[in-house]
Design a protein around this nucleic acid. Sequence first.
RNA 1: GGGCCGUUAGCUCAGUCGGUAGAGCAGUUGGCUUUUAACCAAUUGGUCGUGCGUUCGAAUCGCACACGGCCCA
Length: 501
Amino acid sequence: MKENNNGVQLVEDENKLVALRREKLQIIREKRQAYPNTFNRESTAQLLIVKYSEKNRSQLEELAVETMIAGRIIRMRGPFLVITDGGVNIQLYVNKKELSEALANELKLLDLGDIVGVRGVVFKTNKEELTIRLSDFQVLSKSLHPLPDKHKGLIDTELRYRQRYLDLIVNEDSRLIFRKRSKIIRFIRNYFEDLDFMEVETPMMQVIPGGATARPFVTHHNALDQDMYLRVAPELCLKRLVVGGFEKVFELNRNFRNEGLSARHNPEFTMLEFYQAYANYHDLMDLTEDLLRKIAYALGETTRVTYQGSVYDLGKPFARISVHEAICRHCEISEADLKTITLVKAAAESLGVQFEDEWSSGKIIMEIFEQKVESKLDQPTFVTEYPIEVSPLARRNEERPEITDRFELIIGGRELANGFSELNDPEDQAERFHAQVAQKNSGDQEAMHFDADYVTALEYGLPPTAGEGIGIDRLVMLFADAPSIRDVLLFPHMRPLKNSD
RNA sequence: GGGCCGUUAGCUCAGUCGGUAGAGCAGUUGGCUUUUAACCAAUUGGUCGUGCGUUCGAAUCGCACACGGCCCA
């Protein structure tokens, strides 16, 4: 143990690399405020490059621009230091003989990873690299830990997720993914605002969770002594707003589902949901195609997207086929084999799809679809005509009462979006809720609750409306060519590390 | 939940048949001061994920557990 200048006991670092850096920090502390609050930058690496990279050596020599910038030291190369400033690198040239003795000594306190403020004149080296000739510098924030490998960066996926800041310091690819994510989200907001949609925020903590068949997280409100649920979807709130007269609304925010973790699932994830009165599900398929096409173009000035080696041209019309057609196309099954529940069960058995005897025809059909077909739908495809039993909030088809006016968008075997013409018949909705409650009572933890107020809202009158949800994380995965949802979440959920104490 | 793979220095990775633990980078010391994964010389650094077992002897073989990855449900 040793004491710092506040008299606080410090555990001696078991790691010598850290201990050495702490000693350097201590030397700085003895001289001055080690973590100064103010450093008045006169420029940034980005600005200097924009302003001076086109100038030649003699022009720069004439200008003799003196500047002050700051950044993190990421390379030391003989007399050169490279600092990174907002993701842009710029080189410093250090000649001890040009510095005062005090400053020259302070050079010894510098380590890779330190954040420094520097002053110097802008020039170009023999190799034509824009550089700052160091005349003064100050450590603004001492880095106590060594940085990961300077060539290969941080590779260990576990560390990249647990210590995202480190990943972001050293892995440019990772920084680019999150910039892209931000750009996509901004694009989507602008897109919907341009179409006169209004962005709204509805509760994330709900007394009755609804809007999706999924298991919710439960929490407790102490003052009200009441269990509450983190929302699994904002759907029922958003449709209440359409009842209220906000005819075009969207919400782009977090949902929570109490399910397993995987490369495609995180307990909290970001969803876009939007509702448009006087539209139907065909209108939303058109809108979705247009949106994806424009995002692709905004990101890369092309409608072609490469994901994990496969190329998707979002500029081409997306295929639109029914659940039944999709099954017939990818399994040894004909439309006639799906006519009755007996035939459907026989089909499932012949395909080796497990089901329980009390399941409805629609539920077994969807099980066949999810297990045998979904992953084979590679090119962008809208799958339509979902069975009514698995679509408790979707409008019943006017000709065929056993299916709904619903679609899902599949790209690369992954579900990206789910939309439908909304069920606005309050009596039909009440029946569907009752069916869900019956399922819940027989043990299905994902089945929906009965939301009486929502039925009341429908009784006041929901105009004909269509609505859709788009999984933003999966969308970003597609555009960023990321194999795991964790690659597009800044802080993905991880199991806690066991502490030995 | 099941199967397979991984876990070795701060980082990236080797480690053969079970026989006292290796490299590159980073670090330290010195040199070099217009370099570009800078270079040259010397040098420090290990709970081999954790625990138990087999063995004269375990990073290596076995079992259990933890964390991660991939696949399946």
